[in-house]
Design a protein around this nucleic acid. Structure first.
Lengths: 215, 215
DNA sequence: CGGCAGCTTGAAAGAGTTCAATCCGTGTGG
DNA sequence: CCACACGGATTGAACTCTTTCAAGCTGCCG
């Protein structure tokens, strides 16, 4: 699956869900103004659209943010799986609940912070989630979104995202490169973001992070 | 339960969930800046915190927006209920999914629209949800939030909320009174809001809207 | 070696915020 | 039953963050 390709579109009625194995994915909605709002970003291990299991029609789209690898699981298989193993059902529900928790935090982020804070918070969250699946050492990560997409995720103009990123770099806090994001001063970054990771409910995971079932 | 009282607080580990029978409830988070962000509003029939069933520690607070009536249901009872009746489990999961869908729309709303559009959208959604439970005729509703709270929900300053509301009234679109909100021109309101209710997944409900189990 | 997508830059305009004072409705105590 | 008190609503003016527009730059793919 290559860059910026839709995997499911608003209005679709998928018969399978996907599991992200490698790369980044994001969900977005089109705001009538013609703008696109990215509402979540997904990292390997996530199951970005189990919701289609119960809500037949997609209310948003899912697209790949990078070259990525996905596994597809038929809805029927999923349904059988969690009928016979209630704990699997719980796990899916939990996934949904954690998604919701992240949405709440994003709302607070976009609704309550200025551009600088929003971007810092976005990055803190991503690092945290990547560390949990061993894809970051807390300092470096593969750039998930282009600058303009970062803007679409945080509700900021491309131009302004750019200026904020430049300042963060000049202040030796983060360097948001095209391929790699490098955190230069994570204390400062967290401070700007007022980052408090409790909402990620990370303690739920011990390694191995997830048990994955394929069909 | 009277006005603006916390029902559950961030950090709590509730052993019961509540069902909103009458009045309004909202969830909020404190952004470190000292601001409060309201992340959702609930109307009668909603079960605002089933999530505590699986996510033990609250990552946000729930408060009453008005005098309201609630039913409490023990977690143990809930768990038994949906263990023995899988379809009830589905119903709860569905509730969570619909919440998530609303969060996504709110993100698009706050991230993508200006103050006027945000407020219009907020109102359109509320009316739609209230109509579904026969608490509005589409023109009139009991005011859910004070102006300053409307600001906390949409990420706008009280002062600016006030100015926007004044204009909406002057243009004969909505009259946001202290006790009652009156829609004067719902076509125009929807137009400003670019409102598209698909995300509410309303077709899921036929009357009677919900089957409620008490213990 | 194009050419295009995405990144940069500058200047000007605008939406929304901040601050600070005033008003108003309602509920409370005397 | 009146008067004060307080939370919320209003207003005005100054200010600033963010957007907008528009043009130039750059790295990378074909």
């Amino acid at each position: 699956m290559t860059d910026d390709t839709d995997i499911v579109r608003e209005g679709d009625k998928p018969k399978q869900s996907c599991l992200l194995l490698d790369g980044y994915l994001f969900r977005y909605k089109i705001v009538a103004a013609g703008k696109r709002q990215i509402v979540s970003v997904h990292v390997p291990g996530d199951i970005p659209d189990i919701q289609s299991l119960l809500l037949s029609e997609m209310d948003h789209s899912v697209a790949s943010a990078s070259t990525c690898t996905l596994g597809f699981i038929e809805h029927d298989a999923l349904r059988n799986l969690f009928r016979s193993h209630p704990s699997v059902g719980d796990a899916f529900w939990l996934e949904t609940l954690m998604d919701a928790s992240i949405y709440r935090e994003w709302l607070a982020n976009i609704g309550g912070r200025d551009a600088r804070g929003r971007i810092a918070h976005f990055l803190c969250e991503l690092i945290c989630r990547l560390e949990a699946v061993d894809l970051s050492d807390g300092k470096t990560l593969k750039t998930p979104l282009a600058q303009f997409e970062l803007g679409e995720a945080t509700g900021i103009t491309t131009v302004h995202v750019n200026r904020v990123l430049q300042r963060l770099k000049a202040e030796a806090i983060v360097d948001y490169g095209r391929h790699t994001v490098t955190v230069l001063n994570s204390d400062k970054l967290r401070e700007i973001a007022e980052f408090e990771p409790k909402y990620l409910h990370m303690h739920k995971f011990s390694s191995p992070n997830r048990i994955v079932h394929r069909t």
